[in-house]
Design a protein around this nucleic acid. Structure first.
Lengths: 254, 254
DNA sequence: CGTTGAGTTGACCATCGTCAACAGGAGTGG
DNA sequence: CCACTCCTGTTGACGATGGTCAACTCAACG
């Protein structure tokens, strides 16, 4: 559906060094991994890092690449280190729902299921740590604390999914958009540090498909916030101008 | 908020024997548990059942009892054997979202988190198998295959929650209601066997809060389906008269 | 320099939430 | 035993929210 367009507007997401030129992989030592503390790998004892190193390959993707497709046999799990990934499901009648966006530090493959439950496509040049499923599963068998950590993270995902249910079903589009901007800000902060600038590498259509509204409505809400001087819109995201008011709107009773 | 009303309209849910009279517990042997094959406990080897027996207590609740409240320390996990339970979250601004209904065979406490993520209240007289959290957690440490099974079930829950996101955000109220009726039918079938009758022990308000619509709209949709001869409405649920049309509606593009 | 896709804005109107009224059944207290 | 209250469920009227269709701009790319 999407071609490999490869606009490199978002190469800087998640790190301050230039993006990789080739799509070939190059192993990075887990020891120096900049998202290790954020991620599943935090459960790994320093003494065990060598095992992880052996298991994993760092792999780089252009924007608009596919990590894996929905319902195909799950070959690997991924730990995103830089960039951003769109997670989507196509329902039986052909409509697309975006179930989330994976940012640096996020882990794809928590469920360890035989088949993938959604598609994962990059929306910016992305680096990821790739763990072959079989080997990773074997590692889990020898490391119960890793499995427990995996389970805790999956439970956290479940709580997030349920929050998403609440956001979608009980809030107006205005509230949903305010929640979205604030949530994305919080998530980027873990990677980029404190900032009023919120990268939004995804399209308006992606945002709409995530928030359960059309791209037109998503666009209208954005410009409405900008008119009200709550945010200012840049080509690569938004800048929060009035956080207090945004939070008010996010919590306001309909 | 709710008193212990105890209308026994739904005492028959999930089994064909009369409901318990007292609220006192009486141990049932896991070996003879009628939902064991459906549930987490299916991961337990027959030889290990004695350990489970020792751990668990069968406990009975009237309708409108509370198993646990949201955000309180998690004391126990529950395996529902008969009846039905409403799982709900109150959001920051005080509105209620029902995140699901637990039926016989469902397990509450998959996340093994320190605190509960939602409230659980019975909507019918209910029996459940209660596992103290600490002892259950200890058992998990000695039985990796049980932890794996727990993880698989939690992953399944996650997939369901994401389906719920899709249902709520992309479907009309008509579609949501059709999906709801068909889903509840499928879930009850695992317990009650093949039948066109679908027990709905929850109120219209519960259904609305689950499907992201008001109770008025839920009621209107029900009567609309009844007018169109797709279902017939009984005080304790609905009977499916035209399954094909319901399925059509559930899948129909908006 | 033409094509493509993202983003924006406007006009229109269907859907669904809100407010309101009412019926029926269950529990309660005189 | 009956009146009263409370709760559930139902139905109607009305209007705002947000989807649909359409037109247009702009930037990127070949």
């Amino acid at each position: 559906m999407h071609g490999s367009v490869g606009k490199h507007r978002f190469h800087w997401l998640g790190h301050s060094v230039p993006p990789p030129i080739s799509s070939q992989s190059a192993t990075i030592k887990c020891e120096t991994c900049r998202v290790r503390a954020l991620s599943l790998c935090a459960a790994i004892m320093p003494a065990e890092l060598a095992e992880l190193d052996e298991l994993s390959t760092e792999i780089m993707f252009d924007a608009n690449s596919t990590l894996f497709d929905q319902d195909e046999p799950a070959e690997a799990a991924f730990n995103i280190t830089t960039g951003a990934v769109r997670l989507s499901r196509i329902s039986a009648d052909g409509r697309r729902q975006i179930v989330g966006f994976a940012l640096p530090g996020d882990f794809l493959g928590l469920s360890m299921a035989d088949r993938t439950l959604f598609s994962a496509e990059t929306i910016a040049p992305t680096r990821a740590c790739r763990f072959p499923r079989k080997a990773f599963s074997a590692l889990l068998d020898t490391k119960p604390h890793l499995l427990k950590r995996l389970h805790v993270m999956a439970s956290h995902e479940l709580a997030l999914a349920r929050d998403q249910v609440i956001i979608l079903s009980r809030n107006t589009v205005e509230q949903r958009m305010a929640v979205f901007i604030l949530t994305m800000r919080d998530r980027w902060q873990r990677v980029l540090g404190e900032s009023v600038h919120v990268p939004l590498p995804m399209t308006r259509r992606d945002i709409g498909d995530f928030l359960g509204m059309t791209m037109e409505t998503a666009s209208r809400q954005m410009t409405k916030f900008a008119r009200e001087a709550l945010i200012s819109i840049a080509p690569d995201g938004v800048t929060i101008l009035n956080e207090m008011s945004l939070k008010q709107i996010a919590l306001l009773r309909k």
